[in-house]
Design a binder for these strands. Sequence first.
DNA 1: ATTGAGAATTGGAATTATTCCAACTATTGA
DNA 2: TCAATAGTTGGAATAATTCCAATTCTCAAT
Lengths: 154, 154
Amino acid sequence: MTKVKSRTVFVPPRRGRGTVDDPLSASGVRFTPQRRQVYEVLLSKRDHPTAEEVYLRAKSRMPEISLATVYNCLDTLVRASLVKQVNLNRTAARFCPNMNHHSHFHCDQCAEVFDIDGDAGTRRTAGRLPRGFKLRHLEMSLHGLCPTCAAKRQ
Amino acid sequence: MTKVKSRTVFVPPRRGRGTVDDPLSASGVRFTPQRRQVYEVLLSKRDHPTAEEVYLRAKSRMPEISLATVYNCLDTLVRASLVKQVNLNRTAARFCPNMNHHSHFHCDQCAEVFDIDGDAGTRRTAGRLPRGFKLRHLEMSLHGLCPTCAAKRQ
DNA sequence: ATTGAGAATTGGAATTATTCCAACTATTGA
DNA sequence: TCAATAGTTGGAATAATTCCAATTCTCAAT
């Protein structure tokens, strides 16, 4: 059943050290070696890895990093709006460093995830909300066949 | 890691017995007592219960029903397009018998889920897809504060 | 009606993804 | 330099869901 999680609220701006155009430090998150590593794993191969996959990739360059830390770092990055978390039906969450407006297309056949650019995912597409609702965030997810798998089905 | 699940493909039309306007039999799904019970639980209180909640409600009228069966029935109903499965971040899936076009608003405060009617969720809102993608299904989920919780924050 | 094949159900065990926890380490600001 | 706070670690715990093997049910053909 559901449990309320007490979680320290994300405290945004604190002093970072890195260059100004470094999104990690610019975001106000303290950039520890682990967080940087996790972020770089995401940036270097933008294939929407799961936490487990991020862990394996990060480990190859930083062998002592733990899975728990990867989860923590991903969580921090998501809260800092540097990374998007993509939730698909019944599978592990995936992570994506593309913060432009886009939606995700999930191929039912090969299970790959594709970024679909465009304004799907902007407030506009949400339509008119009934009075009183305060929208913070929206997410559009698409399902079907990717070009490759669609072609294979003649 | 991911595993490919072998699952019997859904076989639509078979002969049912119920009245023609009964969506369960009209859908071609064999309406077993358990499936009917699960479906009725969803229809009778449309508050997006989790599988566990459906199980508890169903059990009160059909004490021998098992949780595994509830999962099976929900799965069958979803495949038969009688029920929508709503996936929210990191929590149990929820189920919804409203098959009209609508999206789901998830209150970050009270965690309740609201149906938002309108064309968000129609193909149109997906925008233009790159060549080759075959869209089958789309889902829009909204996050923020529901009217009650928004008011409490004045 | 009887029967046999295929479906559905059951309870419990297993799995998967994620979170929790307590001990330890690193960093920051006074 | 030191205390306070934040972050990391490994392992244990939890939650949701799936799997499995045994049983029961249903349908259709005899």
